[in-house]
């Protein structure tokens, strides 16, 4: 691509690499405009309308947003999603970090095999994971309670007792730590060995080396996985929908204990045809995610040690 050459101005030609970069970006940019930005603008407009997908949208001002304040299911869905996020994110990051540390210590030929094994659960489709855990967590015949029974523990009704449904979902979510583990593992591999060795010579123990050397050096990766896990937690849908809302009978069993925000949004859109209201719900979620991410970035900038990249580079 070249820029136009107005009279009297110096012609500035793009470098071939830059030109090719733009060419390769075109499909993505078209996709962004047609499949994301356009529909996003349309859904923003619909959030101010009463729209059932069949009839023409009818402008209703801020009614959909006002309705959210009175809708007790919105409050329940927000509560469930927030609690899940608060439980899942720290657990997932800590467990993934432990797994990454274990992987980092495995050397030789076995290393590749173990990395593959650790990542394999991430290859399982979400729907399959949902169905699998519905059986594993079954309070009457599931393997989780069978395992607990070996220690004399009478397990709860994970899939039907409203008090245990959310912990069960958190347990299920820890199945899929592959991506987070791999990102943290890559960060651990970039920690300069000489820093840890210098700390050891200075008399630092394993915990001190981890806290004062490793953790700061991988803090940017940790920050990244916290943000990504937070966003995916707030958008949780597939597994929960499969487990608790996939058919009419499943929908009746759990009350609102598994009502996540995006599940409620989907119900409003495609079960009740309240597309305008669902669009308003979608925009609220977008704003919440944007605000949380902004806060995380502000806080993260104070805590994250970015010079590690410069050092590694």
């Amino acid at each position: 691509m070249t820029t136009a050459a107005p009279a009297g101005r110096r012609v500035r030609r793009l470098r071939p690499e830059t030109r090719w970069a733009y060419i390769f970006m075109v499909p993505w940019l078209v996709g962004l405009l047609v499949f994301q930005l356009g529909p996003m603008i349309a859904s923003l407009a619909l959030s101010f309308a009463d729209y059932d997908l069949i009839s023409a949208p009818r402008f209703t001002g801020l009614d959909n947003y006002a309705r959210m304040l009175e809708d007790d299911k919105v409050a329940r869905a927000v509560g469930n999603t927030a609690l899940y996020t608060a439980l899942h994110v720290p657990l997932a990051v800590v467990l993934a970090l432990v797994l990454a540390l274990v992987l980092n210590r495995i050397t030789g030929r076995a290393a590749g095999a173990f990395r593959t094994i650790f990542y394999l659960p991430s290859m399982t489709p979400y729907v399959a994971v949902g169905v699998l855990f519905l059986f594993l967590l079954n309070g009457q015949a599931g393997m989780v309670n069978d395992f607990l029974a070996l220690f004399g523990i009478s397990g709860p009704q994970w899939t039907t007792d409203p008090d245990w449904i959310l912990p069960g979902i958190v347990l299920m979510s820890l199945w899929n730590l592959g991506s987070t583990t791999i990102i943290l593992f890559a960060a651990l591999r970039n920690v300069p060995r000489e820093l840890a060795e210098a700390a050891m010579i200075d008399g630092a123990g394993p915990w001190q080396r981890f806290r004062s050397v490793t953790l700061p050096m991988i803090s940017s990766a940790l920050f990244f996985v916290v943000i990504i896990n937070t966003i995916t937690s707030l958008q949780m849908f597939d597994q929960v929908y499969t487990m608790f809302f996939g058919n009419q009978i499943a929908q009746q069993s759990s009350g609102d204990a598994a009502l996540f925000y995006v599940v409620y949004l989907f119900q409003q859109a495609f079960q009740f045809l309240h597309m305008g209201y669902a669009s308003a719900l979608a925009w609220l979620l977008f704003l919440v995610i944007a605000v949380i991410t902004l806060i995380q970035v502000k806080v993260g900038n104070r805590l994250v040690y970015y010079e590690a990249e410069e050092h590694a580079g």
């Binding site: 356009g38 996003m40 603008i41 997908l53 009839s55 023409a56 949208p57 597309m275």
Partner: peptide
Amino acid sequence: MAVVLAGGLAACGGVGS
């Protein structure tokens, strides 16, 4: 997202018309 897709359809002005 499904709602966004539906919104796109509406924006095209061809909704059930």
